[in-house]
Design a binder for these strands. Structure first.
Lengths: 122, 122
DNA sequence: ATAATATATGCAGAGTTTTGAATATACGAT
DNA sequence: ATCGTATATTCAAAACTCTGCATATATTAT
């Protein structure tokens, strides 16, 4: 029976404790997304987004998968899903309302192209 | 249906994301403790401990209760208990072993006095 | 009143995180 | 080979966090 490793857990939480990174993770709860999507969603410059993705990846929250010239990021596993559920869905005693994921399409990646075409055939 | 308040949640997590503060919270999971206890447990100077307690208090994780010249801190509510359970008891994919709370008595507060006397009658 | 004890607050230097900007890589298309 | 697109890395200045130290307050005991 060992004692929790407060350093480690603290470091993980530190990565989580950031509005933009939380928002990225929240977006990835629904589905994997490529960098360009997140760029559009967050309205932040691409290097900035890549940087946050790197931190999340290095902390083990997400994984990347190259697909053609795009890189898709998804949550690492179901444990991360539950953590995010716990953290984002029941906002402690504090402010913030319940659920309500962010939507967003409209970048030029293959995935969007597919979706748009599907809905938009002349 | 509103979207989570990432700023708020991020700020809460930021307070959690600190080894000493996690350790304090872990200690308070079992029972309320006075400052002097935590001082002994953490082996940190009293002003330092009080400062961390303040952050935890202001973030809504703990509450204080004056009792004579001591101040006892306890977790704010059962939601905090569950958060801590989730965070400290199943250490993500990361390192750290399972459970195993920290023990510690031996300061001169009334509570300790009681305990020690109870076990230690001549 | 005065002293002693328990806890809180304020402040500052060292260290770390954040974010923007420039640049690099990798890959597919021409 | 060259170009264009998607993503990654590097660096540095500003902002913020951490922690130690000095000091303040509040309560009880003498």
């Amino acid at each position: 029976m060992s004692v929790p490793n407060y350093e480690q857990i603290g470091n993980q939480l530190k990565v989580l404790a950031h509005p933009v990174r939380l928002r990225i993770l929240d977006a990835l709860r629904r589905d994997a997304e490529c960098v360009c999507h997140l760029e559009t969603l967050l309205e932040k410059p691409q290097p900035y987004v890549s940087q946050q993705l790197r931190l999340l990846r290095e902390a083990g929250f997400i994984q990347d998968e190259k697909e053609g010239q795009n890189v898709y990021y998804r949550l690492m596993n179901d444990e991360v899903q539950s953590w995010l559920g716990a953290i984002l869905d029941d906002p402690q005693d504090l402010t913030a309302g319940p659920l309500g994921h962010t939507q967003l399409v409209n970048c030029a990646c293959p995935k969007c192209a597919r979706t748009v075409t599907a809905l938009d055939v002349t």
